[in-house]
Amino acid sequence: MIINNLKLIREKKKISQSELAALLEVSRQTINGIEKNKYNASLQLALKIAYYLNTPLEDIFQWQ
């Protein structure tokens, strides 16, 4: 199981879903879906999320 901390980290950094989506060149709905565990981010997208949030990938998506 993967624990998804994207919403928590994004909100801590005061970045909206729309802002993050624009940086990543995806839709806001994609970010929303990832945060609600409706969609799994591809490895490429997960790495981009970590880069733009300046946060280690394993802090955003944790295996349990």
Rank of each mutant, 00 (worst) to 15 (best):
E58M: 10
L8N: 13
A46V: 06
D59M: 11
L24W: 01
I60L: 13
L6M: 09
L23W: 14
Q62G: 11
Q62N: 07
L20T: 00
R10M: 06
L43G: 05
K12T: 11
L45R: 00
T55L: 05
I34C: 03
L45F: 08
S42G: 10
Q64G: 13
G33S: 14
T30E: 08
R10L: 07
W63N: 05
L20Y: 02
R28T: 15
M1L: 13
N32Y: 10
Q62R: 11
L43S: 06
L53P: 00
I15A: 02
L20W: 03
F61C: 05
A21P: 00
A46C: 14
I34L: 09
S42I: 04
K14Q: 12
E35V: 02
K13D: 03
L45K: 00
K48A: 08
A22W: 06
P56I: 04
L57G: 04
T55E: 10
L57T: 04
Y52G: 03
K7I: 05
F61P: 01
L45M: 09
E11Y: 06
I9Y: 09
K38V: 13
L57W: 05
E25M: 13
I3Q: 09
N54H: 10
Y39T: 11
Y51M: 10
Q62W: 09
N40K: 15
I9L: 09
L23Y: 14
K14V: 05
P56V: 05
N4F: 07
L23G: 09
L24T: 12
I9E: 04
N5E: 03
L43T: 08
S18T: 12
Q17L: 11
E58H: 13
I2N: 06
M1K: 10
E35H: 03
D59V: 09
N4P: 03
L47Q: 13
P56D: 07
A21R: 02
I49P: 00
K38D: 08
N54A: 12
S18E: 13
A21T: 02
I49H: 00
I34S: 01
I15F: 08
I15D: 00
L23A: 15
K13C: 13
L57P: 04
A50G: 04
Q62F: 09
L24Q: 00
L20F: 06
R28H: 09
Q44P: 12
I49G: 00
L6C: 08
L6D: 02
N32Q: 15
S18P: 06
N4A: 03
K7T: 07
A41P: 15
E35N: 02
L53I: 04
Y52R: 04
Y39W: 12
R28E: 15
W63Y: 09
Q64F: 07
K14D: 08
I2D: 04
L20S: 00
K12S: 15
F61A: 01
Q62M: 10
S18V: 11
E11I: 12
K48R: 13
V26Q: 02
R28Y: 09
Y52F: 14
N4C: 09
K48P: 00
A41H: 03
K12M: 14
Q17K: 06
Y51Q: 09
N4K: 04
Q62I: 11
S16A: 06
A46N: 03
T30I: 14
Y51I: 07
K38W: 12
K38P: 05
Q17F: 03
Y39R: 13
E58A: 11
L45N: 01
K12H: 10
Q29I: 09
N40L: 11
N4E: 02
S16Y: 04
T55I: 06
V26K: 01
K48S: 07
L24M: 07
Q64H: 12
Y39G: 06
E19P: 02
N54L: 06
T30M: 12
K48Y: 04
M1Q: 10
I9A: 07
I9N: 02
N5P: 00
Y52C: 09
K36M: 14
Y39S: 08
E35C: 04
S18K: 13
K12W: 07
S27D: 13
S42H: 06
L6A: 01
I31L: 12
Q29R: 14
N40G: 14
F61T: 01
R10T: 03
I60Q: 01
N37I: 03
L43W: 13
I9M: 07
E25G: 15
Y39D: 06
Y39P: 02
A21I: 03
E58F: 10
Q17T: 08
S18F: 09
A50F: 04
L53F: 07
P56H: 06
S18Y: 11
G33M: 15
E19T: 11
Y51R: 09
K13R: 12
E19H: 11
L8G: 10
T30K: 08
L47S: 09
L47A: 10
N40V: 15
I49R: 00
K7V: 06
N37G: 15
S18R: 14
Y51C: 11
L6I: 06
A21H: 01
A50W: 03
Q29N: 13
N54Q: 14
L24R: 01
Q62K: 11
L45T: 04
R28Q: 14
N5G: 04
I2Y: 12
Y52N: 04
E11F: 07
N5S: 05
A22G: 11
S27N: 08
A41E: 01
K36Q: 15
A21W: 04
I34M: 04
L53W: 03
E19N: 10
F61K: 01
P56Q: 06
Y51T: 08
K48N: 06
Q44R: 13
T55S: 08
L8K: 15
Y51A: 09
K14S: 10
R28G: 05
V26M: 04
D59I: 08
L20R: 00
E58V: 09
Y52P: 00
N32W: 09
P56G: 05
T30H: 11
D59P: 02
I9W: 07
Y39A: 09
L57C: 07
W63A: 05
M1Y: 14
A21C: 04
I49D: 00
Q64A: 14
Q29S: 14
F61M: 02
A22C: 12
Y39I: 15
S16N: 05
L24G: 01
Q29W: 13
I3L: 13
Q17R: 07
L47F: 08
Q29T: 12
N32M: 14
K14A: 10
N40H: 14
K36D: 13
L8C: 15
E58C: 12
S16E: 04
Y52L: 12
A46Y: 13
S27K: 08
I3P: 06
N32S: 14
N54C: 11
A46F: 06
K38Y: 13
K36R: 13
D59E: 14
E35S: 03
I15W: 05
L43Y: 14
L24Y: 01
K48M: 09
D59Q: 13
T30F: 14
N4Q: 03
Y51F: 14
G33D: 15
Q62E: 09
L53D: 00
L23P: 00
I49A: 04
T30D: 04
K38S: 10
